[in-house]
Design a protein around this nucleic acid. Structure first.
Lengths: 232, 232
DNA sequence: TGTACATCAGTGAACGCGCGTTCACTGATGTAC
DNA sequence: TGTACATCAGTGAACGCGCGTTCACTGATGTAC
């Protein structure tokens, strides 16, 4: 992800790459909305039409930019996981799952524009097998999440049929916090407060997911479990 | 929120209202991005410049549209709260808080475009005291949340100093799920599955928030509770 | 009650903007003989 | 090794688009006498 090194090989060298990087920079500073074919080509020192040699159109560039964001998100998670100390099997596996959530929140707070772009729904996160969308371990953010949960299943801390709902619940929780911390009402909180809240949130959801009693008996309470639809 | 009833009183009747409604309709069908001064005025059967008699510009209209969305969101929450059966103090208060989350998720799923617009950060949710942003009870979505939590505090189910973090955690969790259910990876899940997941999620977070043991001792585990910043 | 006037909501035309996309082109690169 | 040629990455000009915003205007409304 280094800039303005045109390493001439052919005409431009690797214009596709340069456009991706320029687009990603735009995303970082102005969010999804700021990523534009014309501005990306301008940054790359090239005519707008040149982009069409490497992308089918704007959407194609946006997708590539989103993949770059997912890669950085994966690296942010990997960094947190790298800090997990070795200990007994279960607590370590728990810590690795918590690191997924904490790294996710780190990235959203450090790079709100890139986060917004990566998670805007352009790249369907599960199927993002693009090389750019993986971290140093070669895994996408989603794979890092499912791997951490798979590990808990493997050591018997989570029943296999709970793996998928667990992934959804963890991801929802962390994603919501990240969103609110970036452009929601808690964006003005001091960083230390957000750190503490993030820790608590992540610990809470992981604990909840592993707690059989609260997660297995879905019909615990008789009050309406179906949903009234259509608002106003 | 009815359409095309110009109830002539002055020139147009109430053009400001008509433009809000037209803009809200655009938001419902196409999301924030689809709300445009020109299209809203077109829908209202009026020249684009006419909007400037009632709004200072596009942002002003967007804010008004977001407030309408918050109002519908509040009503969606109130609908869920209306279904809560009378029972003992604590379980009823718990059910009222859960209803906030469930109504929030209902609204996001039923009206994704309106949801996106209302929560896009235009209206700072806590300070949205506009009349349009309140439900039938005269309270905004945020007030409905803090009221439900305040009730738990009042009956001694939650220590007062936990009220604010509890609000943040509940909101984050529910908001994340709503986002992922609307345009995230679980948007393709069958409705019944999402219903079940939403129930589980909401119950889980409320339980977690009320569970003193997991929420009060913040330094339970020694592993890093500060945060490494800056990604990539 | 009727007329003159001030107000002001909505008009219609125009502005500049940046965008995505197209097209015939040019000129550097790599290849065939 | 040198020349002729095909390839194709990037050019530059142009297209139409819808947007937000401005401006002098008009004509209906409400008010003062």
């Amino acid at each position: 992800v280094d800039e303005a090194t045109p390493k001439h090989g052919y005409h431009h060298g690797d214009l596709r790459r340069a456009l991706c990087v320029a687009g990603y920079e735009l995303a970082r500073h102005g969010g999804l909305h700021a990523v534009t074919l014309r501005e990306a080509t301008r940054r790359a020192g090239v005519t707008a039409a040149a982009a069409y040699r490497h992308f089918s159109g704007l959407d194609d560039l946006l997708l590539a930019v989103a993949h770059l964001g997912l890669g950085d998100l994966a690296r942010s998670i990997e960094r947190r996981q790298g800090l997990v100390a070795e200990t007994e099997q279960v607590p370590q596996a728990v810590a690795l799952l918590e690191a997924v959530g904490l790294g996710y929140i780190d990235f959203a707070r450090a790079e709100p524009g890139a986060f917004e772009t990566a998670l805007s729904g352009l790249a369907t996160m599960e199927h993002a097998d693009d090389a750019d969308s993986t971290g140093d371990s070669g895994r996408t953010p989603y794979q890092l999440l499912t791997d951490a949960i798979g590990r808990l299943v493997a050591i018997g801390a989570l029943p296999p049929e709970r793996a998928e709902p667990a992934a959804v619940l963890c991801w929802s929780t962390v994603h919501g916090f990240a969103t609110l911390a970036v452009r929601g009402p808690i964006r003005t909180y001091p960083a230390a407060t957000l750190d503490a809240l993030a820790d608590e949130l992540v610990r809470g959801v992981v604990t909840g997911v592993l707690d059989q009693e609260s997660s297995l008996d879905q019909n615990r309470r008789p009050s309406g479990s179906s949903s009234p639809r259509s608002a106003s």
